[in-house]
Amino acid sequence: MTNVSTANRTAPNQASPTLLAVEGIGIRFGGLKAVDGFSINLPRRGLYGLIGPNGAGKTTVFNLLTGVYQTQAGRIFLDSRNLVGLKAHQVVAAGIARTFQNIRLFPGLNVLDNVQLAGQLHAREGLASTLLRTRRYAHEESEIRRKAFELLGLFGLQERCLEPATSLSYGHQRHLEIVRALAANPKVLLLDEPAAGLNSQEKLELAKSIRHIRDTFDLAILLIEHDMGLVMDICEQITVLDHGEVIAHGTPHEIQNDPKVIAAYLGADAATV
């Protein structure tokens, strides 16, 4: 318990521009260090990127931040609230929502229901009012529905809201993933390879949408992406991960010219050439 209270005292205060402060988190699976000593400071309305070769531990970082895995070291603060030790569903409630690299929509729910599911996170009516269909319950449900429907407008998905989620095209499914995460009303949005599988036209539109979402919803966004063009284009700061460790952090320009980054991507020899 003492650990936690000291941790709270040293937490960044409300006035600081940092929204999500991550310090030295890590996890080992057996003997393997999947992520070690990862740190990042994400400011309000920041749009940061997380890149690295395959298997560098990027998605594991997301899993640590969202409470899927419990970090074995370090600290995570969101708005000076300690997130270490929270379960996955509590982290979403605290304000970090995510999308998935391999799309994970619920095939048994329609498009609107997929979004409503995330939107009902802060719903307060319990089992009794659900079964009794009280007035307050009906009102709350229709509010959730209205907000979910509105959010679908972001990507023009409104007219398809009653179709099964998996009947959407691949690109639309990626959009729906983002809408669903937004419905949880997060402060920080984690996007796991949002452009994977999109064509170049769609990628351009996605870049625009991501900026638009950041501005309209007043969010901080951290995204994992393999498409360097997209990352360099929209991210203000980029963190590079290799073998579970941060090897570089800086502006897109700095990253592009960092020999360590080039080595990580092209193999050790390339840097010396």
Partner: peptide, 19 residues
């Protein structure tokens, strides 16, 4: 909806805030 989401993908359900 929460029940159905647990049926379809427990992990994603959790990530959407389902207890």
């Amino acid at each position: 909806r929460a029940m159905i989401s647990v049926r379809e993908d427990e992990f994603a359900a959790q990530a959407m805030g389902v207890h």
